[in-house]
């Protein structure tokens, strides 16, 4: 049954190396409806990044399947349905901000000139107007991460994957970026899939939080987040917010 969004069907993945085998993912099933925001949280080695890499077609699942907008991951990426922001900005250091944002268009063989207004709009959306021709080395960590977000959105993706996109930022900048991400995501109406270590980040941004545990990596529970949108910065100090954070933390620690 076609449903759009992202669906994991009993995905298994083991890695072997140096005589050891590591069960990175065991029988993971999860569906993220179209237009929803799902956060994946868990300790190191729980397979959350592996799940994302499989969904992006960077790895193959041993068993089970992932569907992106009802397509195989590699079909979906080739059709330009997905956008991605990695743990680290991963910008090409010899390309300017604008050229870095254009990378996905180049890979998908789009005519870059047709997208010039889009690219400009995105650069402004992430607050980098005036830095179009700067090199990554000249930007701060937060600015680089915003370039990566703009780059993830440039193909107007139906599904947006993010692997700890703000992992390298300090707490203050991170909250700021969370607010901006919410705004940008709402505007784009894409299905969002965020891999994170930060409990408060997950609770603030997501509609649903999928908590995972390690050894073997597996999905332990899915927690719904009821707060209304758009969520304001005041939410960070709301008691209900903290209660939910505590609940997630409890599941996280119980899950080990």
């Amino acid at each position: 049954m076609p449903s759009g969004g992202i669906t994991f069907h009993g995905v298994c993945k083991t890695f072997s190396g140096r005589g050891k085998t590591i069960e990175a993912l065991r029988d993971m099933s999860l569906s993220c409806p179209s237009g929803s925001f799902t956060a994946i949280i868990g300790p190191s080695g729980c397979g959350k990044s592996t799940a994302m890499r499989i969904a992006l077609g960077l790895e193959d699942a041993d068993k089970g399947a992932v569907l992106i907008e009802d397509r195989e991951p590699q079909d979906a990426t080739r059709a330009g349905l997905t956008g991605v922001a990695f743990q680290d900005a991963a910008l090409l250091p010899w390309r300017s901000v604008r050229q870095n944002v254009e990378v996905p268009l180049e890979v998908l063989r789009k005519n870059i000139r047709d997208f010039a207004p889009d690219v400009q709009h995105l650069i402004e959306l992430v607050g980098l107007k005036g830095y179009e021709n700067a090199l990554p080395g000249e930007l701060s960590g937060g600015m680089r991460q915003r370039v990566a977000i703009a780059r993830a959105l440039v193909t107007r993706p139906r599904v947006l994957f993010m692997d700890e996109p703000f992992g390298a930022l300090d707490q203050i900048l991170r909250r700021q970026m969370n607010l901006e991400l919410q705004r940008i995501w709402q505007e784009s109406q894409a299905t969002a899939f965020l891999v994170t270590h930060g409990i408060d980040e997950a609770v603030f941004l997501a509609d649903r939080i999928a908590v995972m545990s390690a050894n073997p990596g597996r999905l332990s529970v899915v927690i719904d987040v009821p707060f209304e949108r758009p969520r304001k910065p005041e939410l960070f100090s709301d008691p209900a917010f903290h209660a939910l954070c505590d609940k997630v933390a409890e599941v996280l620690h119980g899950g080990q």
């Binding site: 080739r78 330009g80 997905t82 910008l91 193909t155």
Partner: peptide, 9 residues
């Protein structure tokens, strides 16, 4: 960076 290119096919 290589992953990024691969992700877009």
């Amino acid at each position: 960076a290589a992953d990024l290119i691969r992700v877009y096919g």
